[in-house]
């Protein structure tokens, strides 16, 4: 990481801490904001959060590692999460899964080379009556079939 980038990230975290406050209860919100923008929370970001909130970096890491929507390694610009829970599974999740993997040339858990898309599984999205369902970042898509899923993925930048 370049010094300039580091400085920019520090400034950004500082403004987040100012916005949400220094209390411990603000930690998750701060981490969510970093995750939303950078698609991961780097070691450096965690250390800076810890420093500004005056807690041990391990405390920050323990929170990041607990929540499945937070991560420490960079991911693609778009995170696609396909629901793997029973109702979506019965509604045809497997076919969507196979087609999407073939189309993008990656497996679930991986990121495309151009960093455009990360594929992940997720547990119940609460769309069981309209499965199979997936989230693209925070947007939800339902009643997928292989064709519509591919069309949606091809449209995201």
């Amino acid at each position: 990481m370049l010094v300039l980038e580091k400085n920019a990230l520090s400034e950004e975290i500082e403004s987040l801490v100012n916005q949400f406050g220094k209390e411990r209860s603000a930690l998750l919100q701060i981490l969510q904001a970093i995750q939303r923008k950078h698609k991961h929370i780097s070691d450096f970001a965690q250390q800076e959060v810890a420093r500004m909130m005056e807690i041990h970096p391990v405390e920050v890491n323990s929170v990041v590692s607990f929540y499945s929507f937070l991560c420490t390694q960079p991911k693609g610009r778009n995170i696609v999460r396909l629901c793997q829970t029973i109702s979506c599974d019965m509604a045809g999740k497997e076919k969507v899964e196979e087609t999407v993997q073939r189309e993008l040339g990656i497996k679930f858990g991986q990121t495309t080379k151009d960093k455009r898309i990360t594929l992940e599984f997720t547990n119940c999205l609460g769309m069981c009556d309209q499965g199979p369902a997936m989230l693209v970042n925070e947007k939800v898509y339902t009643k997928l079939d292989p064709e519509t899923a591919i069309n949606i993925l091809n449209e995201i930048k």
Binding site: A26, L27, Q35, F69
Partner: peptide, 25 residues
């Protein structure tokens, strides 16, 4: 306040832990 993808946070004390900025245990 938003959660971050943890089923166990539906348990009320885990939810409170999460609101307080801790792991949802």
């Amino acid at each position: 306040r938003l959660g971050s993808g943890a089923y166990v946070c539906g348990e009320e004390t885990a939810l409170i832990e999460s609101l307080e900025g801790y792991r949802g245990e």
